[in-house]
Design a protein around this nucleic acid. Sequence first.
DNA 1: TATGAATGAGCATTCATTCAT
DNA 2: CATGAATGAATGCTCATTCAT
Lengths: 225, 225, 225, 225
Amino acid sequence: MSSSTTQPNPKPSSGARRERGAKVRERVLKVATDLMARRGYAGTTISAISKASGVLPASIYWHFENKEGLLGAVIDRAADAWFEAAARAADQEETDSTPEQLNHAGFRYVFEEAPEFFRVLLLISLERRDAGGSTLESVKRVRARFRERLVDRLEQRLAGSCDPEHGHHVAERLASLALVLVDGSFVGHQIDAGETMPVEERYAQMSWIMGLARAALIAGEGGAA
Amino acid sequence: MSSSTTQPNPKPSSGARRERGAKVRERVLKVATDLMARRGYAGTTISAISKASGVLPASIYWHFENKEGLLGAVIDRAADAWFEAAARAADQEETDSTPEQLNHAGFRYVFEEAPEFFRVLLLISLERRDAGGSTLESVKRVRARFRERLVDRLEQRLAGSCDPEHGHHVAERLASLALVLVDGSFVGHQIDAGETMPVEERYAQMSWIMGLARAALIAGEGGAA
Amino acid sequence: MSSSTTQPNPKPSSGARRERGAKVRERVLKVATDLMARRGYAGTTISAISKASGVLPASIYWHFENKEGLLGAVIDRAADAWFEAAARAADQEETDSTPEQLNHAGFRYVFEEAPEFFRVLLLISLERRDAGGSTLESVKRVRARFRERLVDRLEQRLAGSCDPEHGHHVAERLASLALVLVDGSFVGHQIDAGETMPVEERYAQMSWIMGLARAALIAGEGGAA
Amino acid sequence: MSSSTTQPNPKPSSGARRERGAKVRERVLKVATDLMARRGYAGTTISAISKASGVLPASIYWHFENKEGLLGAVIDRAADAWFEAAARAADQEETDSTPEQLNHAGFRYVFEEAPEFFRVLLLISLERRDAGGSTLESVKRVRARFRERLVDRLEQRLAGSCDPEHGHHVAERLASLALVLVDGSFVGHQIDAGETMPVEERYAQMSWIMGLARAALIAGEGGAA
DNA sequence: TATGAATGAGCATTCATTCAT
DNA sequence: CATGAATGAATGCTCATTCAT
């Protein structure tokens, strides 16, 4: 997953050279992610990336086939970071008591420590809807995989509360809801920058709703679906 | 807010001529909204707008000072449309029974009939966060005003269910939640284009959650806030 | 001479109307002279003239056939002002005692009160050397006529000092010198804005040299020509 | 001052490649000087420079930051050429007998061989008076330095004719006069293109006046200052 | 691999000018 | 006469990209 979309010249070369090359590549990727997360794809120029990273344009083109390829790599990297955050959250899960509290660590990571990964995914998928290419597909894949993981986790948690079949259904509905809540909270947070609602409160709101929904679903009040 | 969209009669003048100008202005504005909603600000070129609208670039600059100024007009127009949708929804409200069902018409309008207004607001506020200028402020203002309206409406609806003071508090929390749900649903819908969840289902999900939250808040189970 | 080069629509019209039109024309001409004297012809745009004069571009085109025609009018006006200054200086001449002191009033007028007339002539003739058209010819004509006038005046003054034939020759050489001195002093003054040499000193320098040259020429030491 | 004109070896680098770049830069600079000297800054377009030099606009922008930056380089280059001419004239000075004859070679060089350097300095300083930026300052600096050089040279020449203190004063007055005469002669020559007065005659006139002024100043008849 | 230089298409914007009212 | 609107060519400049060293 992290071995990106396009990579024209990954010659083995001498070793130390290669390491330096990888470092340059990483620096470019970081800067590109930052810029694209703030200005979008079209608003981010190669020369801006060059200036901010100190890597000459021609060198950027040595590491990535073209701007589109660089975008692919940025997306892959964001996806990786996303799942890394999910994994990190999973490690702390043991201590959490209710399923709706899962991912507190992940939530904070995504919202506060490295929001550029989520931002870039969101922004790119809004901005490049009709620009042919695989970007939108990539984002969809990330989201689908994230959702699956969520469903699994929720299913395990619900194992004791209801029978397996019902459990799976409940897990799926909760996962969908979680996605909506995360998306909505993130967007709101990006727009108001915490002015109308601090991150912690957003998290609390989300947990609260997840709790209500879980209870309602287990009790059988499923709403419209 | 609706000032820049329609220019009734700034000067006595000839009439027919001015009218044609206003029509051109409106056509440009519509095309610009469409394009910016799909490609973002940076990705939308004046010449693309020109081609799609049939209005020459130089004429576009007669109607709008800048690309930036055009963006401002686009945002104002989107805001107007937004509140128009809200008003339209309010007219149908009488027949709805529960407060969480309010805005079904508005929801459908925004999600299906004219999603570009919401899209452009969302996209622009993500894309142009650090590009100085008033765009982000405009979007914030629209959202704040929308939220206030929601609070008012909800408060009226809750009048019978609890005492006024508590009612206001409940209305505010429900409004915040509604914003999160609308944002999240919209983003999800934009990304999956209805593949993983049809619009109706998204609306049902939202109503269901709003209902749960209302019940819980009235009962006093307020979650973390 | 003041009834300019091009004038597309001088319809007789109603009288009061015509007077207002003449005022507008004059305002445009004044602003155009100012701007062209500072930014040159190419650097002065119709819309800049419009903004500075409050006359709409379309109206400017009603008074002048095109930008080139406006330039012609500007030059004519500057020439008029130039000769007006010369005439004004001639009136005060009686009190002056030596021929080299003639034009003190004119000198001050041109250098301090209305330098834009000289400036525009100078600038345009440098700037538009190879832009076909009559501008350069106009400037040459002004200068030639000014020189003739100078020669006449000087000849009268020298009448008592030497025989007519010699007198004419001396007057011509003095006139040439005067032109060089005025040009050079003006250019220097425009560049240093009086910092290295105040206007009065420049005038004194010029008078001093004119005196030396007259004495030398009358005495028969004619230099190389 | 000569810094921006020639770029010897800022970095070790490949050599042949850089040399070609420097040549292109020089070609652009030459063409830009020519055009700006004839049409002024505003009248000289980048695409005109491109067409006349065979260098693509984008390449011009590789060598110069701006049109303004290009102008700066043009001015520096003109200043260099100016002092080069002065130096060339100084070499031939030994054979000249009187101080007023100094610079005959320089005079001819500036008036006939490479008048564009003087023209561009003159034209730009008239045209861009209120266009903020350092252009006017640059021209002032060039003129000041030129004047200092003149004063030095004249002082040496006058060493035998009068005491040092008086000599310095005389030299300063003669230098001021020389500047006026050169400016005026050049402007006149540019306007009439030698029609009313051939270059040689202008030079003779200037020498004659310088001789008269020197004699008068040494004799103590200093005019008004 | 990194660098200086080039390239051609495209960008936002302004130009001089015209026309109908 | 003045005004709002249009027009097409040009402007200064940046873009993504390539190439030779």
